[in-house]
């Protein structure tokens, strides 16, 4: 739905089409194991693989857009055939899926996306769960293939420390400066009173 068509009509924006084109290239080779496991993602994630200038890639993008528009409609988000028979496993799969980014989409989890890659990932998550992986193991596995970019809630590390610390930091700064203001206030008042007296004295002196 949201998923359904946004990618195609948005693909003029550099970001999405870049990712999309990679995914398109990636997919044919993707069905190597068990018919669905996506390719080694390392190639996909490398910055160098991106077109050096996006104007150069514009034509390719345009073609891609047309291809995508004329292509048969992609599948929806979770389809009946993907759903696991075990309800708890399926529930876990949904939970995990909502944490993983659909890499070819703009701002969607694989759970909401219709893209082929999202479907592949959903199946991958379910296959891993069926194989007895814990939630953490599934996520680790996906991250090892696709990199941190795939996580909608980034992990705490040196790169994301500022992101995670920001709310706490802001609260601390705000709270401390409030305390400072509250403490300073009475002092300020006495200072103000003094200056008023001084002011009067100065005026007196000036009059003389």
């Amino acid at each position: 739905m949201k998923a359904l068509f946004f990618p195609s009509f948005l693909c003029l924006s550099q970001e999405s089409s870049r990712a999309m084109s990679m995914a398109r290239k990636a997919l044919p080779t993707a069905r190597t194991r068990c018919d669905w496991i996506p390719v080694t993602s390392t190639g996909m994630r490398k910055g160098k693989a991106l077109p050096a200038s996006w104007t150069a890639g514009l034509f390719a993008k345009l073609v891609l857009c047309i291809v995508l528009l004329l292509a048969p409609l992609p599948a929806f988000a979770v389809n009946p055939d993907e759903i696991l028979p075990d309800a708890t496993q399926e529930h876990r799969a949904r939970e995990i899926s909502s944490q993983l980014r659909c890499m070819v989409c703009q701002n969607q989890s694989i759970d909401d996306s219709n893209a082929d890659l999202a479907r592949d990932l959903r199946l991958l998550v379910r296959e891993r769960i069926k194989d007895g992986d814990s939630d953490g193991q599934v996520i680790d596995y996906v991250v090892s293939r696709y990199g941190e970019f795939v996580l909608l809630k980034p992990r705490l590390n040196a790169r994301t420390i500022i992101l995670w610390a920001m709310p706490v930091l802001l609260l601390l700064i705000g709270g401390l400066s409030l305390l400072a203001v509250l403490r300073k206030r009475p002092a300020q008042r006495t200072v103000a009173a003094l200056t008023a007296e001084e002011q009067a004295r100065i005026e007196d002196l000036l009059k003389k």
């Binding site: 994630r45 910055g47 909502s98 944490q99 980014r101 701002n107 989890s109 990199g147 941190e148 970019f149 795939v150 996580l151 909608l152 809630k153 980034p154 790169r159 994301t160 500022i162 992101l163 920001m166």
Partner: peptide, 24 residues
Amino acid sequence: LTGTLYPLVLETLTGEKISVGAPF
């Protein structure tokens, strides 16, 4: 604001891509 701009700033500075989405 931080969550919205963080991926953008990080990518500009280090070239590393992360996602900050609904769960965050």
